[in-house]
Measured scan of single mutants.
Amino acid sequence: WKITIYDQENFQGKRMEFTSSCPNVSERSFDNVRSLKVESGAWIGYEHTSFCGQQFILERGEYPRWDAWSGSNAYHIERLMSFRPICSA
């Protein structure tokens, strides 16, 4: 599993790669995730830290803005603060 997060939209700004769970992006000096690329595996992104709040399934691909992973939710969530890989047995 591999995911790359960015602190600006369209894959700009600070970037960081992960191959395992991140319970709080702010502990990695990110205020928020504004864009991301899922390089391999599937991940679950969460609205809040500690894997809480609205969940987003993140499959392999590029997500240049928050609405790319938020989709058409009843209330739009511009925040992604934690994530972890989906492990299959």
Rank of each mutant, 00 (worst) to 15 (best):
86 I>P: 04
11 F>H: 01
62 E>I: 10
39 E>T: 15
46 Y>W: 04
20 S>E: 14
60 R>P: 14
64 P>A: 11
12 Q>Y: 07
57 I>T: 15
59 E>C: 12
86 I>S: 12
63 Y>W: 03
42 A>W: 07
70 S>P: 06
41 G>T: 02
38 V>Y: 05
31 D>F: 10
24 N>Y: 03
26 S>A: 13
88 S>C: 08
16 M>I: 10
62 E>W: 06
85 P>A: 06
27 E>N: 08
36 L>M: 07
75 Y>F: 12
86 I>W: 10
60 R>G: 08
75 Y>D: 15
20 S>Q: 12
78 E>T: 13
17 E>D: 11
75 Y>M: 13
70 S>L: 13
59 E>Y: 13
83 F>Y: 01
37 K>L: 05
62 E>F: 14
33 V>L: 03
82 S>F: 00
18 F>D: 01
30 F>S: 02
15 R>H: 15
52 C>T: 15
82 S>Q: 03
69 W>Q: 07
18 F>I: 07
37 K>T: 08
38 V>F: 03
21 S>Q: 09
14 K>I: 07
73 N>A: 12
19 T>Y: 14
83 F>T: 02
46 Y>K: 02
26 S>I: 13
24 N>S: 09
53 G>Q: 00
49 T>N: 11
58 L>V: 04
36 L>F: 11
68 A>L: 06
27 E>W: 06
66 W>R: 12
89 A>N: 08
84 R>K: 15
84 R>Y: 04
4 T>I: 14
37 K>G: 00
86 I>F: 13
54 Q>T: 12
42 A>L: 12
84 R>T: 09
29 S>N: 11
74 A>C: 11
67 D>N: 11
88 S>T: 13
56 F>T: 14
89 A>H: 06
52 C>V: 13
22 C>E: 07
46 Y>A: 01
31 D>H: 13
44 I>N: 06
33 V>H: 02
53 G>T: 03
76 H>C: 11
45 G>I: 12
38 V>G: 02
77 I>S: 14
11 F>A: 02
44 I>S: 05
51 F>I: 02
72 S>W: 07
30 F>V: 07
49 T>V: 15
11 F>Y: 12
74 A>G: 14
26 S>F: 10
5 I>H: 01
26 S>C: 12
17 E>T: 12
6 Y>I: 00
87 C>D: 15
61 G>H: 02
88 S>W: 04
48 H>M: 13
64 P>M: 04
52 C>R: 14
69 W>T: 08
23 P>G: 07
79 R>I: 05
14 K>W: 05
56 F>E: 07
57 I>H: 13
15 R>I: 08
48 H>L: 11
8 Q>N: 06
86 I>L: 14
58 L>Y: 04
44 I>M: 10
27 E>M: 07
80 L>I: 15
50 S>K: 15
33 V>F: 03
18 F>K: 02
74 A>H: 14
4 T>H: 14
82 S>H: 00
82 S>D: 05
63 Y>Q: 05
39 E>L: 12
39 E>S: 11
42 A>R: 15
62 E>C: 10
27 E>S: 09
65 R>V: 07
81 M>N: 06
